[in-house]
Design a protein around this nucleic acid. Structure first.
Lengths: 138, 138, 138, 138
DNA sequence: GTGGTCTAGACCACG
DNA sequence: GTGGTCTAGACCACC
């Protein structure tokens, strides 16, 4: 049970289960969590974050569906081997969807197109992330 | 559910939701309701006062906006401790957050930085959206 | 709202939400439901089947994730254009998983390998289904 | 929750769960409990009788197996109306059901009939499992 | 102890 | 009215 940092803010717009999903995904992407690591149990995490156990169940279920976690009955959840479960078309579709969400928020916040581009660039260079991971191929 | 007295008179000049707002405010001001007290549920109060549930929703919403009440998803409304309003850097924070969400999804889907940039550019030019609306102020 | 037949049996081993998912998938596969058809509302279906609304929510959510349905906020759920969202590897993985489930049940029921083969053949010829649908390609 | 009398004596020869089973059976037989009556929840009864919750679970499970009680997920246990035991063709029915599940998934994943047959064969030969275990009887 | 399914019923955002 | 998120707490299957 690698106790990586996990934190949720209630009252914010984003649902709690979504925050958990995002943070776990990020932790896996950055290597804070690696394949085989065990996740905190549904109940213990619910207590730690002061949320209902079913909220954790929902978050873990989504991560399982997306191939990020795997469940072992009676043992708990574990970080899965990284694999690309989506078809090329579906991946493009999802990227477009994510871009739309960003633009939607930016429009709502009244930013300009250039400000959006800058913000994206800034984040990309900050991560210094250019190429695909070699082993990943749908 | 501290059952403080609450009473509305229909047919009077003042809207029902305003009467509720005023009475709750008064109750808080006088100490009849203190921080942490739970309010009657929207439905139960609607039944008790023989008014439409949306009327209660409207009254509670105004009290939340004014920081008098707080809502806890799935539990109900509670008398608030204090209130805080954010703005200013909040806008910037939310843009960064939206960008993060996009990048995380892109990383998860195993796209490259350039593919992300292209997808964003594509969407921006598609919308042909360059400048802030004149009346908007950063 | 094409009122195709939908029926659940409580007390059986299979969860209610799973039964719903299967039946909707089958209806789409057989053409009983076609792209654009609207699904019964969460609430109405919950009443009709005498189950909790959240059970329907869970079933519909899974169908959305699998690309079978699409949700339009405030309007309801609709049958989506058929598309293959999974990568080739993931499809093989899922087929293997489905085969494992069958074998597991057959072993548990103490059938022979040939009996399993026959049962599969019987069903396949019954459906007279040989080739991929032309337009489907990940 | 018809609060019929229920009492256990520890230290006696008969196991606690058997005492509970007998008393519930008797209550049903004498009409102290009638069809539809709800039973005390597992946890509450465990607390009331000062025994472990699993003991109650065991007693209730036996009563369910015997058709005395019925369980309604999320609601609790209720005195059953009647009972029915299945077998015989049930085995065949369950195999067909399992096959159907496989075929549905395969159709959904857009595999061909031959691909399904191959996948099944592959798994069967992998297990090198041909015959029934000698002691088993259809 | 673990996860999984289900019920009941709350508020929320959207149309 | 629609779907969506959340809480609370029940039983179930597995280890």
């Amino acid at each position: 049970m690698t106790s990586f940092h996990l934190q949720v803010t209630t009252g914010a717009g984003t649902p709690i289960y979504r925050q958990i999903v995002e943070q776990v995904r990020l932790a896996v992407a950055t290597g804070a969590l690696v394949a085989g690591d065990s996740m905190p149990s549904v109940r213990s995490l619910a207590e730690r974050l002061l949320v209902n156990a079913n909220t954790i169940v929902k978050a873990y279920a989504e991560l399982v569906r997306d191939g990020v976690l795997e469940s072992q009955q009676g043992l708990g959840f574990f970080v899965a081997q990284r694999r690309q479960i989506y078809s090329k078309a579906e991946r493009r579709r999802r990227l477009r969807h994510a871009v739309d969400a960003l633009i939607h928020e930016a429009v709502f916040l009244d930013f300009t197109a250039d400000e959006v581009r800058d913000a994206v660039d800034e984040k990309l260079t900050e991560l210094d992330w250019h190429a695909k991971s070699p082993g990943a191929k749908a």
